[in-house]
C-alpha cells in the first residue's frame, strides 16, 4: 500500500469542516454576498486542490521515506511543547512571576547543562529583569496570579 500524504488529508478534512461551517452561515447571493460565501469559496478551492494533489500523487511511486526525528530528539521537543502548553494554561492562574520562573528553570535545565542551583538563580534573575523591563518600563500588565503582583 502506498504512503498517503497525511498533511494533505488533514487539509482535506479541514476544508470539509470549513465548507460545513460556511453553509451554516448566510451565503447571500453573488450580488449581495453574505458572511458565508467567501469562506465557502475558499473551503471548496482548498478541498478540490487537496483532492487533485492526492489523486495525482496516488499514481506515483513513493520516494524513500526518511524518519522525521533522530532518536531522542522528538521526545525532547515534545517535553518542551508540553511544558509550553502547560505554561499557557496556568499563566493566568499562577501569574507571570511564578509560572515564568518554573518555565525558565525547566528550559534552562533541559537546554543548558548547569547545576540546578545556578539555573534556579539565573531563572529568578531573568524573570525579575523581564518583569522590571516590561511591566515597569513598558507598562505591560502581566497577570498577577496568586502572588498578587
Amino acid at each position: 500500500m502506498r504512503k498517503l500524504d497525511l498533511d494533505v488529508i488533514v487539509l482535506l478534512v479541514f476544508s470539509l469542516i470549513v465548507c460545513y461551517e460556511s453553509l451554516r452561515l448566510s451565503l447571500g447571493s453573488t450580488w449581495k454576498p453574505g458572511p458565508g460565501l467567501f469562506p465557502l469559496l475558499l473551503g471548496v478551492t482548498l478541498g478540490v486542490l487537496s483532492l487533485i494533489f492526492l489523486l495525482a500523487k496516488g499514481f506515483k511511486q513513493d520516494k524513500k521515506v526518511t524518519p522525521l526525528w533522530s532518536p531522542g530528539s522528538g521526545k525532547r521537543v515534545l517535553t518542551i511543547l508540553g511544558a509550553l502548553c502547560l505554561y499557557s494554561v496556568v499563566f493566568s492562574f499562577l501569574g507571570y512571576l511564578i509560572s515564568t520562573f518554573f518555565l525558565t528553570f525547566f528550559l534552562l535545565s533541559l537546554s543548558y547543562s548547569g547545576k540546578w542551583i545556578r539555573n534556579g538563580i539565573t531563572s529568578i534573575l531573568i524573570c525579575v529583569v523581564f518583569y522590571i523591563v516590561f511591566q515597569v518600563l513598558f507598562d505591560i500588565r502581566f497577570p498577577s496570579g496568586i502572588l498578587g503582583i
Binding site: S88, F91, T104, L108, I126, R141
Partner: peptide
C-alpha cells in the same frame, strides 16, 4: 544557545501577550 533559547521563548511569550493583554493569545502562540 542553551542560554539564548529560554530568553527567546520568554520574549515570544511577552510579545504575544502584550499585543492585546489576553492570556488566551499565549495559548494561540504555543
Amino acid at each position: 544557545y542553551g542560554i539564548l533559547a529560554p530568553l527567546i521563548i520568554l520574549l515570544c511569550i511577552i510579545g504575544a501577550y502584550s499585543a492585546e493583554g489576553n492570556p488566551g493569545d499565549v495559548l494561540v502562540l504555543m
